[in-house]
Simulated scan of single mutants.
Amino acid sequence: MSENCFSRIASTGSFLPKRAVSNEELAQDLAKIGVETSDEWIRTRTGIEQRYLASGEESTTYLASEAAKQALEAGGFSPDEIDLIIVATTTPDSVFPSTACQVQAILGASGAGAFDIQAVCSGFAYALSIADSMIRAGSAKRVLVIGAETLSRVLDWKDRTTCVLFGDGAGAVVLEKSDEPGILASELKADGTRGVHVLAADSHIDGGKVVGDPFIRMDGRLVFKAAVEKMTESARNVLTKANLATNDVDLYIPHQANLRIMNMVREKLGIDEEHLMISVNQHGNTSAASVPLALDKAHRSGRLKRGDLVLLQGVGGGFTWASVLLKF
């Protein structure tokens, strides 16, 4: 590996389903099946105002491919310039082939390697760190990293503790070789002992049938406590690795799951509110798509500029958590 072999984000993209569902509309739909909720109940507990829900034709592969096309177009890249495609998803369209292979076929990126990773809401941070390592090792020059989910398909609409939280969408970046460091530090962590008991969709296919509970189940209190603890700790670790401080951070993009969690971690880290990127109000929790959706929104709105120091974080089922510190 060359001493000057680094990676940087060259471009971003994102894509959302056509249907946006407000809290009011969701509450009306849920009332029809005997589930009581309201805009006030959802908003005060989570900060979510709406989410996007995929139609039957809007698959995870479709959302991922459209986000990828935006990222490629934004960077002026053709599909044959991509060496590797990594898709972070918890909701693939099939057991195999992977979502990444299906995206590769749609894009026509025939020369690229392709695989999926599954780290739930930490998936994009995991994938970005893997892509950075591949570039630093000289195995790739340009990697398409995507987070894509259709979580609405694994929701129990009679479970108010989960069905109001999640949405569908996809975000993507093109990570390319650079002479200057772009990814400054990262940390990937997990605690499997907290897996099934905290946040899971505990099912599998056996004999052509789904065995177990296919829906997302969550212990909200334990998730809240663990998320705040682990995100705070991980953020401090990557800043220490890079010999930087929280007041150096220009934009903080945590996993967009719950505004109360995001603000609590921000306060513990001492990051000013003006540096916090918020998209959970518009997208809900989109798991692995959460961070790249927020990243693309920040970039396209002009809030994120070249040279800015950005802290990305994910935390979710598994139990996993991850942080990536980068110079945009």
Rank of each mutant, 00 (worst) to 15 (best):
L269P: 07
R51C: 05
L175H: 03
L188F: 06
A67M: 02
D191T: 09
A201K: 02
A114I: 01
F215T: 01
A190K: 01
A131K: 00
K297Y: 11
A298F: 03
E40T: 14
D308F: 03
E66T: 06
A105S: 09
I183P: 05
S287P: 07
E233I: 12
S122I: 10
E229T: 10
M231V: 11
S234M: 03
C5E: 06
T193R: 09
E24M: 07
A64L: 04
A235Q: 07
V164F: 01
V164Y: 05
V249F: 07
D191Q: 11
Q282I: 13
A294C: 08
Q28N: 12
Q102P: 05
D206I: 01
M277V: 12
G212F: 01
L326F: 06
D219R: 13
D39T: 10
L188K: 12
E3A: 10
S178V: 10
V164N: 03
L304T: 02
A298S: 11
L244S: 10
S133K: 11
S55V: 13
V210P: 04
R266E: 07
E176M: 03
A257I: 09
G167F: 02
L30C: 10
R45W: 03
K32L: 14
T240H: 12
A190W: 02
G111S: 14
A294Q: 07
I135S: 02
L325E: 05
A64K: 12
A185C: 03
G195H: 04
R306I: 08
A64H: 12
V238E: 08
V211D: 01
M1Y: 01
G182P: 11
P79A: 09
A68H: 03
R19L: 10
F77H: 14
L188A: 07
Y126K: 06
R160Y: 02
G207I: 13
V174H: 07
G169Y: 07
R51Q: 04
I106D: 15
H204E: 00
M264D: 13
I9V: 15
R194S: 11
K241A: 06
A200R: 08
E233C: 04
L312T: 05
S234R: 03
S186R: 00
S14P: 00
A227N: 10
I85P: 10
D308N: 15
I48T: 09
A137G: 13
A242M: 06
R303H: 04
D83K: 04
L155Q: 10
E149L: 04
S38D: 05
T232V: 02
A71G: 11
V223R: 01
W157I: 09
